[in-house]
Design a protein around this nucleic acid. Structure first.
Lengths: 221, 221
DNA sequence: TTTTCATTTACGGGAACCCGTAAAGAAGCA
DNA sequence: TGCTTCTTTACGGGTTCCCGTAAATGAAAA
């Protein structure tokens, strides 16, 4: 089993439980930090001392508490750590449930495991440790996509920009101007209208207010 | 200190840590359940046996895992439990950060403590236990904000109905019809328009989309 | 280059929305 | 009852939005 493990998790309650889970595995050398910057510092230090960590367990979102930090999210932490020590194993432990976000972690950021904070998370974390130690990829079953797929619409960054501007009170007819400012590719008013029309159609909405409400609900805004 | 405590929390990891916190307090009789229905059952059973619980610690949101449940949220659980045993103390332990929602818990649902799942949640839970045991109200400092108090508007139920209908896609001109159905007093289109105009004016908004987004943010919808 | 196809933009009629003003209604008081 | 005051509703114009169609642009194939 893993010898040295580093845990980056700002919620004290979650941190405590991860500790306990590791103890049950007989892992003695575990370090627990509450900030991403501290995590990177410990990784570097261990690397220098010739006693590198085998595994990093990290959350995705770290709440800002006005302590200035260089690294502010789990994704950035993984990327920074991989630069220092490319062979380290990483497990992300987060409440994120959007399949696109989770899949991005595996494809772009080369993580080894994902456990969603949900009903049987302790059990799944346990399985993740075993699986990742065996050099395999682990994804907790409740984060395996396909669950939320009813008549959902895959929002592009273009879509999100439009809805975001609407939610900020920009009149529809002025949206082209804002899109040009950001060099976003289609910027014509008709393109905006057509895209809004398509989104409303797919989601069976009739008004833009519904789009804003929907995006707020699924955490897109 | 409390003798018998019941914990309703679906996340296994969080549940484990609450257990540990209670153990550190020397509380021996603690029962841990993962569903609201089970919680109510145990409360009733203990009541019948003449050994009632002193304290209920519950989450707000319980994830649906296709196990059919009567009670599906922490608020409903508190209300149901209070009917069975009005004198029980209740602490809510949740990630909810919207002050409006938290304040509602205290005013309408008579809870004794709120601890937000955040950085120092274990420490705050500790303080909550002591404070509530001393018959006082506890609210973890990171949920006590009041930071959102800019030029805020006191929403009436009339306001909320209007915005809710907008967020559901009802055309503005049809809102009078829906208001009449619910016997809401001013139902004229002009009244609706005037009220929307006032809300936008107070909050310095120009579009209804902003109102919907704002209400979602502060937990009004 | 020309042709073809897809994407983007321009335009116009009709509906919904914004907003100011004025009429109608409801409640309180002599 | 008659008067005042406040709330609610009705109306009309100017604007924005919705949506279908057509023109313009651009990219890839012939």
């Amino acid at each position: 089993m893993f010898r040295k493990v580093l845990i980056a998790e700002d919620h004290e309650i979650a941190n405590i439980s991860i500790q306990k889970t590791l103890q049950d595995f007989g892992i003695q050398e575990a370090k627990y930090v509450y900030y991403c910057d501290h995590a990177l510092t410990w990784i570097k230090k261990a690397q220098r001392d010739g006693e590198p960590y085998d595994l990093l367990i990290t959350d995705l979102i770290f709440e800002d508490d006005n302590t200035p930090q260089q690294i502010t999210s789990g994704i950035e932490l993984v990327q920074a750590v991989k630069q220092v020590q490319p062979d380290i194993k990483t497990i992300v432990f987060s409440a994120e449930s959007r399949s696109r976000v989770i899949d991005d972690l595996f494809s772009n950021n080369q993580i080894d495991g994902y456990v969603r904070k949900a009903r049987r998370d302790a059990q799944y974390l346990n399985e993740a440790l075993k699986t990742v130690y065996a050099n395999k990829i682990y994804k907790s079953p409740d984060s395996a996509d396909g669950a939320l797929v009813k008549n959902s619409h895959e929002f592009t960054t273009f879509d999100i920009h439009i809805i975001s501007l609407l939610a900020q009170g920009v009149p529809q007819k002025n949206i082209p101007y804002y899109l040009q400012q950001k060099n976003i590719k289609p910027s014509g008013l008709s393109s905006v209208e057509k895209r809004l029309n398509l989104m409303r159609d797919v989601l069976d909405f009739s008004k833009n207010e519904q789009l804003v409400a929907y995006c707020k609900d699924i955490g897109l805004l």
